[in-house]
């Protein structure tokens, strides 16, 4: 997996480079918009992390240029601007995800991994399976060990999101964004409460637990321990 990082702050860049390398990515770093655009056009990457405030060419224009040239590279926008309209603007003009500074590295990693997966899972499968759990996206049914489990629509959406990212941690804010389309954290732990409901329906009475909490990071669906 190869990533492009376009970021002018050397400390943030080092922090990301170090973390991503440890997580198993190869990473190229460019510190201005023009060289970032050049690399994005001429090299092959799995995803890019692009800052908005960049010297020479700003991040959003960079992405816009990329898209106008038909480059479909998945892009995560990194920005110190956190106003709602900046976010909407960044996504409308070609970004795939948006994360505001300061951010937690875990969150960044989870989002980048999700971007890469989304880009590679082009073939839509009607069924998703983890261990003895299978969900049917068309019939909207959940079966574990030949036992049918009834879920509310939102619980189904949550499970589907966890299944699509099986084996990878997703953060609470990612869940809020994707499952509830809330771009804010209502602080009170609504996600936790919902996960515990889902866990009760899915894992109770089975020997192997599938939904795991990763402290300080989020949740992961997988067979066996974290």
């Amino acid at each position: 997996m190869k990533l492009l990082l376009v970021e002018d702050d050397p400390r943030i860049a080092d922090f990301i480079k170090k973390g991503m390398t440890e997580a198993g990515f190869f990473i190229d770093h460019r510190s201005d918009g023009e060289s970032g655009l050049h690399s994005a056009m001429h090299d092959d990457y799995d995803a890019a992390i692009i800052d908005i405030m960049l010297p020479k060419l700003d991040g959003v224009s960079l992405i816009e240029t990329l898209r106008s040239k038909g480059v479909r590279l998945p892009v995560l926008i990194l920005s110190a601007k956190r106003a709602l309209d900046d976010r909407v603007n960044g996504l409308q003009r070609g970004g795939d995800d948006y994360l505001t500074k300061p951010f937690s590295f875990v969150e960044l990693l989870a989002r980048v991994q999700a971007l890469v997966r989304r880009a590679s899972n082009v073939v839509e499968s009607a069924q998703l399976t983890v261990s003895d759990l299978t969900i049917d996206l068309l019939a909207r049914t959940v079966v574990r060990d030949r036992k049918k489990i009834h879920l509310q629509p939102r619980e189904f959406a949550l499970l589907e999101y966890l299944m699509r990212n099986k084996g990878h941690v997703v953060s609470k804010t990612m869940i809020m964004e994707r499952v509830w389309s809330y771009n804010f954290d209502p602080r009170t732990n609504v996600v936790e409460a919902r996960i515990s409901r889902l866990r009760e329906k899915l894992d109770k009475g089975f020997e192997v637990a599938l939904i795991h909490t990763v402290r300080g990071m989020g949740y992961v669906l997988k067979e066996g321990d974290v």
Partner: peptide
């Protein structure tokens, strides 16, 4: 400067209630 659109407030309330239901 807010980006505005047609919002079904009943729907917003339904979704919020659904979100807070477990709590």
């Amino acid at each position: 400067s807010l980006a505005k659109q047609d919002v079904d407030l009943a729907n917003v309330i339904y979704e919020a209630v659904e979100l807070f239901e477990p709590i």
